[in-house]
Structure formats: structure tokens, C-alpha cells
Design a protein around this nucleic acid. Structure first.
Length: 219
DNA sequence: AGAAAGATGCCCT
DNA sequence: GGGCATCTTTCTT
């Protein structure tokens, strides 16, 4: 078995991202092993990228991205979801690849149990960045894990894509929405649906307080 | 201290 | 196709 080396990640993120397609992310947890063949990723170019969490500089949350390449940057969002990135480039650059979707090739029963009834369809188990984390059991504990270490509970096996690679705009980002930095295996059933960014309207607010500006006013 | 937005997913119509 | 759940981080007073 070949594990991806540190040098693989210590390169420009736009080179690393498409080459991660087809590689297999493995998580050995207490309750079992789940392995996912990556079918969809997105590149985030560190401090120079307005859509990156690193755009406003280093903070406690994104510190892993500013460190050594080959580590997992796990973040929590929308009050309920985890997403996982793999850090690229030299330390300090803070570029990373978001793992958006994959095909479960080992531990499907465990993945389905973690996902609950909703993800019973095989192709949906790890379709979407938060689903991928849920199916693999990735959370805060995996933040900072060294995926180049074969002894690590979370690591990556090197494999070829086994298909043609497509590229297009990233999903759900409001800034730099035009750059085609999303890569996926063409035609793969586990690739998530493209969804452009839509600002979510404020739901909860003080009674009697003015509501947010009416977005429906446009013609 | 307060607010606003967020690299999303699920359930309903 | 659209609303809603739910909370952390970061920016603004």
C-alpha cells in the first residue's frame, strides 16, 4: 500500500487538488474502519483567496491550515456540520483542499449506520462535504491529524482517478465564485449537485425589531 | 456585548 | 424548489 507523502501535499494547491481524485481516505475509528475513494474536491488558495477561511489571517480556528502540509483541517459550520480539508503548500501559505464527496469502498455498513436512515443509498453516503465527514466519523478529534502517517487513524492511500476529470466553479461560495477550482470525476454518481451560494435570510430576531431588508423587492 | 454570515443537509410541498 | 435547524467565529459598536 502506498501512502501519499508529505511532498505530494507540499505543492501548489491547484496541482494537488485534481490528483487527490481517486485516492482513498481511510479512517480507523474505535467502532471500525471506513474508506472513501475521493470523487470531488475544491481548492482554497490560502490568504490570497477571498473564499478561504485563511483570507483574514491566522486565528485559533484555522491555525492548522497555516501549519505543515498533509494535515487535516476540520471545521464546524452551520451549527451542525463538520467538513474536512487537507493542507497543501509550504507551512504559512494556508492553502488546502476541501474534500466534497467520495464513494464508500470499505465499511459501508458502519458508514450507513453513522448516516442514519437518510443516507441508505450507497451513492449518497458520502455525497457532500458534511455527509462525507459524518459517514467517516470525522469530527473535532480528527482536526490536525497527519494523513501522511500510515500509523495515523486518518490517512490517504495513493491511487489513480480511474476516469476523466472535470472542473468548474466552487459550490456555495459567495466571493471568487467564478474561479473553476472545483474538480470531480466526470459522470461519477457520488459527485454532489452544484449549488450556487444563496445568503440565508435571518430567521430569529428580537420581537418588534425591524426585520432584515426585504430581498424580494427586486423586479 | 451584539450581530451577521456561514466551503450544508434534510424534510416538506 | 424553498424553508428551517443550530452554533461558532469573526467583525462591529
Amino acid at each position: 500500500m502506498t501512502t501519499l507523502a508529505r511532498e505530494f501535499f507540499d505543492r501548489p494547491v491547484l496541482s494537488v487538488a485534481p490528483e487527490l481524485l481517486g485516492c482513498v481516505l481511510v479512517h480507523r475509528a474505535a467502532d471500525g474502519v471506513v474508506a472513501v475513494r475521493l470523487t470531488e474536491v475544491e481548492a482554497y488558495a490560502g490568504a490570497a483567496d477571498p473564499a478561504s477561511h485563511a483570507f483574514r489571517g491566522q486565528t485559533a480556528r484555522n491555525a492548522v491550515m497555516f501549519g505543515e502540509p498533509g494535515h487535516a483541517y476540520v471545521y464546524f459550520t452551520y451549527g451542525m456540520h463538520f467538513c474536512v480539508n487537507l493542507v497543501c503548500g509550504p507551512a504559512g501559505e494556508a492553502s488546502a483542499v476541501l474534500l466534497r464527496a467520495g464513494q464508500v469502498i470499505d465499511g459501508a455498513d458502519l458508514a450507513a449506520a453513522r448516516r442514519g436512515g437518510a443516507g441508505s443509498r450507497q451513492a449518497d453516503l458520502a455525497r457532500g462535504p458534511a455527509r462525507l465527514c459524518q459517514a467517516m466519523g470525522i469530527g473535532r478529534s480528527q482536526g490536525g491529524a497527519d494523513v501522511c502517517d500510515p500509523a495515523s487513524p486518518l490517512f490517504v492511500r495513493a491511487l489513480a482517478p480511474g476516469g476523466q476529470v472535470s472542473r468548474g466553479p466552487r459550490v456555495g461560495v459567495s466571493r471568487a465564485a467564478d474561479v473553476p477550482w472545483r474538480f470531480w470525476i466526470t459522470g461519477d454518481a457520488t459527485v454532489s449537485a452544484y449549488r450556487p451560494h444563496v445568503p440565508r435570510q435571518r430567521v430569529r430576531g428580537p420581537a418588534g425589531a425591524p426585520r432584515p431588508a426585504d430581498r424580494s423587492g427586486g423586479s
